[in-house]
């Protein structure tokens, strides 16, 4: 073994709180109780990723999870992702309407440019739209040129705001990956909340060079992609895990104040004919509980504040 410099045993951030200045250390159980509208206990945030995975993926600095894995042209993965935006999403919309869900759509700006029909449909419904980056291969990453990233954020947000007519306030980075500058660039471009950090179950204040924004708790652990395609559990197991989570959070909310059940789902995963029934089963189960409040991400944040 080669020698390590003695500096390896120096710990410059070893003091109270976090080892960075982005947010304060705080245990959820010690915070004031939160109340949701009409005395509800559990906010249901259904977040739908409407993603564009380009066929000519660059893979810089890594291949985005869910993206192309084969040599060009990877028709297999390209078309199977496209399936979600052509077919699966219309199954989702029916299910949402059946159960009274208020879905938040996280849209790749490039998808909005390419499928105006779908975007018009969502605009007509009046659901909340947030930005999911320019497209899934336009990653934000440590070491990225700051000017390049600034242009990317601006292009993604300006384009989506123009096409949707909504003053888009929320953001999810592709692959929830960031550079050290991403939160600052988001704040500079009018974003008030983002959903990349999974360190809490409730919203919290995140500091940027352009003032504080809010980190919203969008669980990766409960995601359809994560459970079904990363962990390789069945759709039935996904449904069972979500129902268990719902039960637990509802119980916790009874003594500790309002909680959020965030379901990040994708029409190319759960919109498949053999899986859609599990989504319907989950929505039926959750919405049968009268303490549940289906809401847009922005509404949850407004009620939290």
């Amino acid at each position: 073994m080669s020698k390590l410099d003695n500096k390896y045993l120096h710990y410059p951030h070893r003091s109270y709180g976090m080892d960075h200045n982005r947010y304060e250390w705080s245990m959820l159980s010690t915070r004031p109780k939160v109340s949701w509208p009409e005395g509800k206990l559990l906010a249901l945030w259904v977040n739908v990723g409407l993603q564009f995975f380009p066929l000519n993926q660059r893979g810089v600095p890594f291949k985005v999870p869910g993206g192309m894995t084969k040599p060009y042209p990877d028709l297999r993965h390209y078309s199977l992702r496209d399936y979600g935006n052509r077919v699966g999403i219309y199954r989702f919309l029916k299910a949402f309407d059946q159960y009274g869900i208020k879905p938040t759509f996280a849209v790749s700006t490039r998808l909005a440019e390419r499928t105006p029909y779908l975007i018009d449909k969502i605009k007509e419904r009046g659901d909340e739209i947030i930005c999911h980056g320019y497209h899934m291969d336009a990653l934000h990453y440590g070491g990225q040129d700051k000017v390049e990233e600034a242009e990317l954020v601006e292009k993604a947000l300006d384009g989506l705001r123009k096409m949707t007519g909504q003053d888009v306030k929320g953001w999810i980075s592709p692959a929830k990956n960031e550079s050290a500058n991403t939160p600052d660039l988001l704040a500079a471009n009018g974003i008030t909340y983002f959903c990349d950090w999974v360190n809490d179950d409730m919203p919290y204040v995140f500091q940027t060079q352009h003032g504080p924004i809010t980190a919203m708790p969008l669980s990766t652990e409960l995601e359809d992609y994560f459970i079904i395609l990363n962990n390789l559990h069945s759709a039935e197991s996904w449904a069972e895990q979500i129902c268990d989570a719902c039960d637990f959070l509802l119980q916790e909310a009874k003594t500790q104040g309002g909680r959020i059940l965030s379901l990040n789902i994708h029409p190319w995963v759960l919109g498949q004919p053999h899986r859609i029934g599990q989504l319907e089963k989950v929505l039926d189960y959750i919405c049968s509980k009268r303490e549940v409040w289906p809401a847009y991400a922005g509404e949850i944040l407004a009620a939290f504040k």
Binding site: Y8, G142, N177, E178, A180, D196, V198, N199, T220
Partner: peptide
């Protein structure tokens, strides 16, 4: 950096790995 093991799969900041572990302490 340690010459024998890389702490995180992504260059700084490794948001996903860091933040879920922080969740363990906060929540």
């Amino acid at each position: 950096a340690n010459p024998y093991r890389t702490p995180w799969p992504q260059p700084h900041p490794a948001v996903s790995g860091y933040s879920i572990r922080d969740w363990g302490n906060r929540v």
